[in-house]
């Protein structure tokens, strides 16, 4: 279980995360939905112990999270950053092996993890090709596989489908559904309604660092005071407004 209480994070004068309270159950796929600059990635950085200077309290699997936290806490989660956080001059296999080693897998575990990661990314045939020869979709799939290389109980995913073709996007969805079916906890940021609706049991809608509502589609619709037939996009636009966001 992940629990955040009165979570705040500021960059100078700007409050990027503004007193967030939420709980994510074990095995749940939880979505952080919001427009650009809503504070989704900042929230994820706090949850994964990366951000510095946040206040409030976070617990992951019953252990308190703090910046530069204990290794034991970090062993419990994996991060799939929004950037393609893999080494382009290395092959897919080398990337999985390298991050697997740093995640603490021994050589036997690593061999298994590499095969599993390549299958997860659908890159068995391109295992020994350099990443800079891959398409955007292949890189995104590898990015996901690397984050999951040590099969952590909790996986933080920061917009993992940005800029990919429909086939790769579908592959990533299927992969995430498969991980969720294994009982893994997924925390997923996106600004695509259909992704949130397809994958997430519950969604936290954010805007300007604040929580505007949290729950299932139905619960959010009720919180917004809208008709039961409203789409998630209607609810989202109702809550966050229709003005343009430039990050």
């Amino acid at each position: 279980m992940i629990q955040a209480k009165q979570l705040c994070l500021s960059y100078g004068e700007r409050l990027a995360v503004d007193h967030l309270d939420f709980t994510i159950e074990q095995g749940e796929c939880f979505g952080l939905l919001g427009p650009n600059g809503a504070g989704k990635s900042s929230t994820l950085a706090c949850l994964s112990g990366l951000g510095d200077g946040w206040t409030g309290a976070i617990e992951v699997q019953g252990k308190a999270v703090r910046p530069a936290q204990e290794l034991a806490v970090r062993r419990g989660f994996g991060l799939v950053p929004q950037d393609l956080a893999v080494y382009e001059e290395m092959t897919a296999r080398e990337n999985l092996a390298f991050f697997g080693e740093l995640a603490g897998l021994n050589s036997g575990e690593r061999a298994t993890a590499i095969d599993r990661g390549l299958a997860l990314a659908g890159l068995e045939d391109r295992a020994d090709d350099r990443v800079d020869q891959f398409s955007g979709g292949m890189k995104r799939r590898l990015n996901l596989a690397v984050g999951d290389v040590h099969q952590p109980p909790v996986l933080f995913l920061d917009e993992p489908t940005v800029g990919v073709d429909p086939q790769s996007r579908n592959h990533i969805f299927e992969t995430l559904e498969s991980l969720a079916s294994e009982g893994r906890t997924l925390v997923y940021t996106t600004h695509y309604m259909e992704e949130a609706e397809r994958l997430c049991q519950r969604i936290l809608i954010m805007n300007e660092g604040k929580s505007l509502g949290c729950g299932t589609h139905e619960e959010l619709t009720a919180q917004a005071g809208m008709a039961a037939a409203s789409t998630l996009e209607d609810v989202f636009l109702h809550m966050t407004g229709r003005s343009l966001r430039d990050g």
């Binding site: 994964s48 112990g49 530069a68 290794l71 956080a85 080494y87």
Partner: peptide, 15 residues
């Protein structure tokens, strides 16, 4: 800049 630092820092090893 390329994002690998974020991933490295999230891994279970001392920064």
């Amino acid at each position: 800049d390329e994002g690998t630092m974020r991933r490295l820092l999230s891994l279970p090893m001392p920064p």
